[in-house]
Design a protein around this nucleic acid. Structure first.
Lengths: 214, 214
DNA sequence: ATCAACAAACCGACTGGTCAGTCGGTTTTT
DNA sequence: AAAAACCGACTGACCAGTCGGTTTGTTGAT
């Protein structure tokens, strides 16, 4: 699980260390949670030293923050790209849902951090929490706005609905993270898809039309 | 904010102390989060001593666990009661939604703990997390099943949908908790209500019919 | 009713472990 | 030779949990 983390061009020893630290942080935070993870854990896993860590980041919180924002950006970009592969709002929303599920399934540590740890790390991180959630919600909101514009769905509170949608996926994913054996996340996709599309008033024809590129 | 916490009959000095501790825990955990709160904080706020705390509970984690389960039980019962005041599935689901919003608005510390802290406290508490979430979801699921049974909505994956619904409300509430000035939670109720009822295929007539007992 | 004797409930100073962050020193790069 | 990057032993603060001791409540014998 190497993961995509090269926000800044990753050449030179400095960047390599920064990357190694962030990648270790991803795994350690993902496994033990923010409070359960010690900086020494991250440092050890990265094969670096505490000095290196505090050369690159001013604090443990800063490591976490950098990681979260990096992950969120990469994730949002990746989803955006998948959405741009298709045209109609219904298809694009569908692509967003399936894309998120795919990533979560493939990178559980990422899912844990973005979906659970940011929320639970404490009030000091609530700005980061909102930042991440808002990014995802905006992705959805824009598409809903477009659907309203072209008359695919009736006008509605797209901001609220985007938030609610993300919450719905979030909750399902949290249960899955807790007990992955209780059923794959992909298995929830068809029901979730129908639920979401139907909730904003896409016509039944449209709800059924979009192919399930599973 | 005295709050409803008399699970076991609250008479005698012993029970009074237990209650005082739990109520203090509610406020302290609600303000500082699980990891940010020290047992001494709770003890001080309760006007008791550390000895008393460890006489009643074997550990800090046990205090948290007892509090969470107590809150969840009370909350679920209270919502169930509100649901039983009306008859049709749509009305009952509506009552559940509004009831939850009401309680969260009135008791932010409770909302913070049930919606955020349990999830963020760490993997050691994931059983409690699931316990709480499942209780709420079951409340919804039962009603959805009934709606399917009487033909008010088409058959669907009620288990998944109940989970998703709770997630939707959860997410909206989390944003509200982060910035209560951005808009009251009650203001989101009409849109949320329509979104949820419509998502499972209640007829438009039914969606509009139910009075908004705001 | 009175009072020992006992237990239940409570107190708070103390301890031991953990861990974020520091800093003098070393290696690598420019 | 100067600066950038890195090393890892150390420290100081914090805090969950302990424990000897005190107070409050209960029992039951006289």
């Amino acid at each position: 699980m190497s993961l995509r983390l090269p926000r800044r061009a990753s050449n030179g020893r400095k960047d390599a260390t920064r990357l190694a630290l962030l990648e270790a942080a991803l795994n350690v935070f993902g496994e033990k949670g923010y409070h359960g993870a010690a900086v020494d854990d991250i440092v050890d896993r990265a094969g670096r030293s505490k000095g290196a860590a505090y050369f690159h980041f001013p604090s443990k919180a800063a490591i976490f923050r950098a990681l979260v924002r990096e992950l969120a950006n990469q994730l949002v970009n990746s989803i955006q790209r998948k959405m741009d592969d298709v045209d109609s709002p219904a298809e694009r929303l569908d692509a967003a849902l399936l894309g998120l599920i795919d990533v979560f399934v493939r990178h559980r540590a990422l899912a844990r951090i973005v979906l659970i740890e940011v929320a639970g790390a404490g009030r000091a991180f609530s700005d980061d929490l909102i930042f991440v959630r808002r990014q995802f919600a905006d992705l959805i909101e824009r598409e809903l706005d477009r659907a309203v514009e072209i008359g695919a769905i009736p006008p509605c509170d797209t901001h609220l609905i985007a938030t609610a949608w993300f919450g719905a996926l979030n909750e399902v994913a949290v249960h899955w993270l807790h007990d992955p054996d209780a059923g794959s996340l992909h298995a929830s996709y068809p029901s979730l898809r129908q639920l979401l599309l139907q909730s904003v008033g896409f016509s039944p024809a449209e709800v059924d039309r979009v192919p399930l590129h599973a």
